[in-house]
Design a protein around this nucleic acid. Structure first.
Lengths: 128, 128
DNA sequence: CTAGGACCTGACGTTGACGTCAGGGTCAAG
DNA sequence: CTTGACCCTGACGTCAACGTCAGGTCCTAG
């Protein structure tokens, strides 16, 4: 596949794919004329990269994790890294959940207020 | 309170507080000599700002949400914004959860492999 | 009165994940 | 053979949330 096709199927920009290559995340064969040629699995790989990026991992972290996908075998070090990254993701999840709950509090308070300005709970951090 | 005290109690840098003021997120009185004076509630406000930032909201989004905390009253527009931001946070949560689960898959596959290289499941996106 | 912390205002530096523009090959179709 | 879509390599631009440095002020303790 050529770069435009991969980009389209993976839902990213062509620039992003070249950037991934630059970062060592995505290798590509070259046609005699110098154009990149990707195997079909590249699409899945790109999607996975996107998932990791979406999880807040930097390209170095992704770079450290990707080799784990290549084959089934994990070194001790890889295993540790995976666990560490998982912990990071989980921590982010916790923070996000807390934020969502806080937003819910604000929303509920607002709705209660509109419904008849009756409830005056303590969910809102510090009322004057 | 002076800026250093607020920063210490809220666990952020002095620079961050000045930045928040610059962005209109955190107002401050001024002493005659020009030094910022904060009311005690500022600490909570800063913590809330941090929570929203941690939730991946940009400063403009935070700026749109903060007025909702001031009083109990929400305009229709504020309510809509809150719901929209909540949706965004929830979407991020879903992505993060997916990422974590994928990491778990990789970890589990690796552990199984090490335990006796028996299982060869399909969780690993495209094995060569 | 003097030392040294804490504070002030600019203003430039940083990092990540690309966007975008310039200038120029490549390739299948008509 | 030429057009137009696609590709290439630099290389600079961007945006957010601050970090950091420079040069100067304030203020409290000894």
């Amino acid at each position: 596949m050529r770069i435009g096709e991969v980009a389209a199927q993976a839902g990213v920009s062509v620039r992003a794919l070249r950037y991934y290559e630059e970062q060592g995340l995505l290798a590509a064969e070259r046609s005699p004329s110098g154009q990149r040629r990707y195997p079909p699995e590249a699409v899945d790989r790109v999607r996975f990269i996107q998932t990791l990026y979406a999880a807040g991992l930097g390209s170095k972290a992704v770079l450290r994790i990707l080799p784990c996908m290549e084959h089934g075998g994990l070194t001790d070090e890889m295993h540790q890294r995976l666990l560490a990254e998982r912990a990071r993701v989980q921590a982010q999840l916790d923070e996000l959940t807390a934020a969502r709950d806080k937003l819910d509090d604000v929303i509920r308070l607002g709705e209660a207020h509109r419904a008849g300005r009756v409830l005056h709970a303590d969910g809102c951090a510090s009322a004057s």
